[in-house]
Design a protein around this nucleic acid. Structure first.
Lengths: 228, 228
DNA sequence: CGCGGCTTTGATGTTCATCAAGTAAAGTGG
DNA sequence: CCACTTTACTTGATGAACATCAAAGCCGCG
């Protein structure tokens, strides 16, 4: 789904291509591929050849991986500006992660060689890229540590606060993932995630209506997050 | 401990400064600080201002972090070429990790601004830097996932094989860390790490003599690693 | 020689995964 | 559109995995 939209107005252009001259921006604009991925669509598949540099313009994605033939592991969730095109696109030949759209997502892609050439020609652009990649990796590692230091209740509380504060910026939100995906992310079983959510509901900390969650006692949820 | 050693012979120069011209290499050589850190020394402290870009010339270090006031978390172990100067040196103002020497380590440091200017002036150098940073982050994330997918026995087996194969390339080796540090790394308690090591000893999988470990049944250890 | 830190083992209780069984919701084909 | 299948969700019961508490031995160091 190639589109000839004008990149001049794109805020992401500013993020990555701030340091490119106008003819280069035009080049990017003419050579980029913009694709709308419906919910559930696989954007990048583990094992595939890395051909493109991609970034998320809108939507929400999950980053996952198959580890040692065991069940799917979810590494992180990401929104625009959290960056997409992965940690390893410049250092590997094959994708080592799978990226899936959790909500309808617009992804812009550029031939990886074009980006590489830009970086080589333009050090400021490269430096900008380093900053973005660093922040993305750092965020993933920090989140994994935050989860590792907690137990079941704390982990579930953490992820509820995460969606509420970081992603939706609202006490009421629609969970973009299944109970199983939460379990895969926090490293617990689906049953125990459900049990914990039910406990929170019984304790009047949250309201549950299918995928819709309302946080009604945020202080208590924060306390559980901090003390479990 | 500043030294005027000749960087021309340094293999790390090739890794990072392959793309710098000779006068630039001389500049690096004259402005670098080479420091020998004895075992146990803190090389970088969490919270300090980021002033330098550092890399490990020899030795072994651990990367750790205090998370949410809870006990110290070990993120990874690293050797030379595994890289040091962290994921976030170009994107943050303060160090968010602590680096400690587990064995006597030689660290070379350069003013971070010098490195930044090199990257801006020389895109190839910047690209090289991106690759190194990417690989380092990717490795950390992969290791955290490998540990997360396993249970106590599998985790301990994993770390024994890790030290044996990746670090010391020998079936006999001196553990560079305490039992507590292993526990902090694999996210279990010290007592259970010890108990597991004792079990492995009773099952004649390893021999233990204080910090010295000998793997005598590697196939079995690998099996435990793969099935727990 | 005595103190503190690291290591070890055992006993106990908590946390969590697993198994089982049932309900609700969502997709599928006639 | 409905019967059918599949997938997601939910709850309970049980046992396994693990943390915690306690006590003692070991070792290096002042």
């Amino acid at each position: 789904m190639m589109q000839n939209c004008n990149c001049e107005g794109c805020e992401l252009k500013l993020l990555f291509f701030d340091n490119l001259e106008s003819p280069e921006i035009n080049y990017v604009c003419n050579n980029k591929i913009e694709k709308i991925h419906p919910k559930g669509n696989i954007i990048i598949k583990e094992g595939e050849l890395i051909k493109q540099f991609s970034y998320l313009k809108s939507g929400l994605i999950k980053l996952c991986k198959n580890v040692s033939n065991k069940s799917e592991q979810i590494i992180s969730f990401a929104q625009p500006l959290d960056f997409v095109s992965l940690i390893n696109v410049f250092s590997d030949i094959f994708h080592s992660y799978t990226v899936v759209a959790l909500e309808e997502s617009i992804v812009c892609s550029l031939d990886i060689e074009i980006v590489r050439q830009f970086a080589i020609k333009n050090g400021k652009f490269a430096m900008n890229l380093i900053e973005k990649l660093s922040k993305a990796s750092d965020k993933i590692i920090m989140t994994m540590l935050e989860i590792r230091t907690r137990r079941l209740y704390g982990r579930v509380a953490y992820i509820l606060l995460y969606f509420s504060e970081k992603i939706y910026k609202n006490n009421v939100f629609e969970l973009p993932v299944s109970r199983k995906e939460i379990a895969d992310f926090i490293g617990m079983t689906t049953e125990n995630v459900i049990r914990t959510l039910s406990e929170f509901r019984k304790d009047k900390i949250i309201k549950i209506n299918g995928k819709e969650i309302e946080i009604i006692n945020k202080a208590k949820l924060q306390f559980i997050c901090d003390n479990n």
